[in-house]
Amino acid sequence: MNEEQKLADFEARIERGEIIEPKDWMPERYRRQLIRMMSQHAHSEYVGMLPEGNWITRAPSLRRKMVLLAKVQDEAGHGLYIYSATETLGIDRKELLDQLLNGTAKYSSIFNYPSLSWADMGTIGWFVDGAAIVNQTMLAKSSYGPYARAMIRICKEENFHKKQGYEIITTLANGTAEQKKMAQDAVNRWWWPSLMMFGPTDKESPNSAELMKWKVKIKSNDELRQRFVDLTVPQAKAVNLTLPDPDLKLNEETGHWEFGHINWQEFYNVIKGNGPMNKERLKARNEAFEKGKWVREAALAYAKKHNN
């Protein structure tokens, strides 16, 4: 079979809704797009531990501390699921990690913002995990089997992340004037970056059309963003917090909440590495990798000794 026939067969399989598995023939471009997208996703989980890790030692109660620890541990697990799934495409974990540590790989722009107060732990769970759930629920139907299966596993675990965040925010919003102010401030800072998490608008997204053609993605960035806004607006109202967008209004006809202009300049700036925390995040990851080196070496030395 020549390449053209193989491609036609592949696209017919996608069209029929078949799931592609690691050893199946796939176009090189499909493989490369998946490696790009999945490794960015894995790196996001991995770097995503940092903004919340920042508050573990300062959690306001033992309950909150246990919850936050469990959540951060989940993020590490989620990173591993996706790294494993990415490796099925024929790329080594070490190579993926090297790309992250030397700064050539991208990860979600949201993690380049600082977590300044305890209320940020609430807002991150509510907004950031909420947005991730919207995205990942869609990806659970992705055409690439290992990616879809990792997403199903992650979605099952992620709901607790969102709920614990919303619980923190609800508690603060019903607390003292100062606590409510803290919650509102966190909402104000995280709202717009959370909307940016879905990526550029459909018109500006260079990869979307191809990813949708091959059913790696089922819904576009704008559709997902709209879903997130529609879900979140009533949740904010329920706890009497305001979303920082004067243009936010319900379109009675469509039933969707229309929102104001997203500052894409800021988005591209953060993507290029100039966000408030880009350098700090990479430094932290590199330090962790270096500090863990002796553990990896010791484990290998121990294994070698016992195998001989």
Binding site: L80, Y81, S84, A85, E87, R93, A150, R296, A299, L300, Y302, A303, H306, N307
Partner: peptide
Amino acid sequence: AGNVHAAD
């Protein structure tokens, strides 16, 4: 379920 890296 998936895979892991480990020394032994």
